[in-house]
Simulated scan of single mutants.
Amino acid sequence: MNKYLLAWMFLQLPVLAHAGTPAATGAVAPLSDAERYAKRCQSQSAHRIAKPQGTMLWGTKRSWDTEKLAPELSSVLVSAALEPLRQADGDVKALKIEGGRLVAVPSAAKSIVGTVLQGTDSAGKPVEVSICGAEPSHEDPGMVWYRIEAWNAVAQEWENPCVALNNVPDPRALAVSSLWDESGASKAVPGRFTFACENGAITKCVRWGYKPWASRDGQPLADLHQACTRMARADYCGNGRSHTHQDTTIDMYDRLGMLTRTHEASAEWDPARASFEAAWGPDGATCLARTRDGRALATVLQECPNRFRTNMAVELGEGDRCTTRRVDVSPGAALLRNHSYGASTGGVSQGEGP
């Protein structure tokens, strides 16, 4: 009997040993720095399915855990530090940001591709981000598109933190020298910047012409860019909450005349089907006529009590008329205005979306 018992235990040892390995328990063994950096920029195929994320500010994934329901304004990457660098090839000692591009320090260094920076997620936790490619923009020679990967500590692999959509399946990122908090407000923080992904509002507003590092007729565009991010996400209260759907069609125009109101119909836009929605400042709407996604205006105003006054008609000109206005800001001070189709219809976005 003892002989059979010993034989049984001997046969079970490999099974028991396997049960104690990280693969059997579901845990992934952590890698050393050298092993981790060796894996970066390998263009690994995505094997996890991302859940729909609605409208986005940074354009990044909310969480590495695809089974976790994360808040709207959570992100796996919200900022990165220019120095010290976690890893760099060649003579790159640090980075600096000039307009819409990153520049190596010292300037004699040839390339920043392969550099690993110390980033931060929306919870303030550290996350490493690697620059895997740099492509000069065809639209603006002073702007560069970056292909980036961030270290996914859950899966122990490098992964593009940018959310892919059907129209942009392999999104890139821009380097923007401001940080955005969970309320959607931007601020300058020395030594830090944002990798703004291609499908997020920060980058979309840059592509529409509102470059926060630029000026128009001597007037800085930073506030206009900030107002644009509020408008793109229909963030009426200026608290970071969006009130729109992906690929909702809008028409926007600004007080500087950079973008003007569309009066002629096209395949992308039909002015006859649209109506005035809201006027916008850097901290949200200055006045509203209706909501973009069709929810009751009273429901939205409950998010920011005492901020707006209802039944206060304001004529802004060109047929734009508000029925609800800010208590503390003149509607005429708005930097942007927009028209949209409303909730009952949809279409291809001029640019507004997640």
Rank of each mutant, 00 (worst) to 15 (best):
N2L: 13
K3I: 13
L5D: 07
L11M: 12
L11N: 06
P14F: 06
L16Q: 06
H18N: 08
T21C: 00
P22E: 04
A24V: 06
A24I: 06
A27N: 13
A27S: 14
L31Q: 14
S32P: 08
D33K: 11
A38M: 00
C41G: 05
Q42N: 14
A46Y: 08
A46V: 10
T60G: 10
R62Q: 11
T66F: 12
P71S: 09
V76Y: 08
L77E: 09
V78P: 01
A80K: 11
P84K: 07
R86Y: 10
Q87M: 12
G90Q: 04
G90T: 05
K96Y: 04
I97A: 10
P106G: 05
P106V: 07
S107D: 14
G114S: 06
L117T: 07
G119N: 07
K125E: 14
V127E: 06
V127I: 15
A134N: 05
E135Q: 14
S137Q: 01
D140V: 08
W145Y: 11
W151I: 03
E157G: 03
E159Y: 03
P161T: 07
C162Y: 02
A164R: 08
A164C: 10
A164L: 09
L174D: 01
A175R: 08
S178G: 11
E182K: 04
G184L: 01
G184Q: 00
K187W: 03
P190V: 07
F193I: 01
F193A: 00
C197F: 01
K204A: 15
K204H: 11
K204E: 14
G218F: 08
A227I: 00
R230F: 01
A232V: 09
A232W: 05
R233V: 05
D235N: 01
Y236C: 02
G238R: 00
G240C: 00
S242G: 15
S242T: 07
H245L: 15
Q246H: 11
T248I: 13
T248G: 13
T249K: 14
D254S: 02
A272L: 03
S275Y: 05
F276I: 00
E277Y: 08
E277D: 13
A278L: 11
G284L: 03
C287I: 09
L288S: 04
R290W: 07
R290S: 09
T291D: 11
D293E: 06
G294E: 05
R295N: 06
R295H: 09
T299A: 10
C304D: 08
C304T: 04
R307V: 13
M312G: 05
A313W: 09
C322E: 11
C322R: 11
R326N: 04
V327Y: 10
V327H: 09
S330H: 13
A334Y: 10
G342Q: 09
S344D: 15
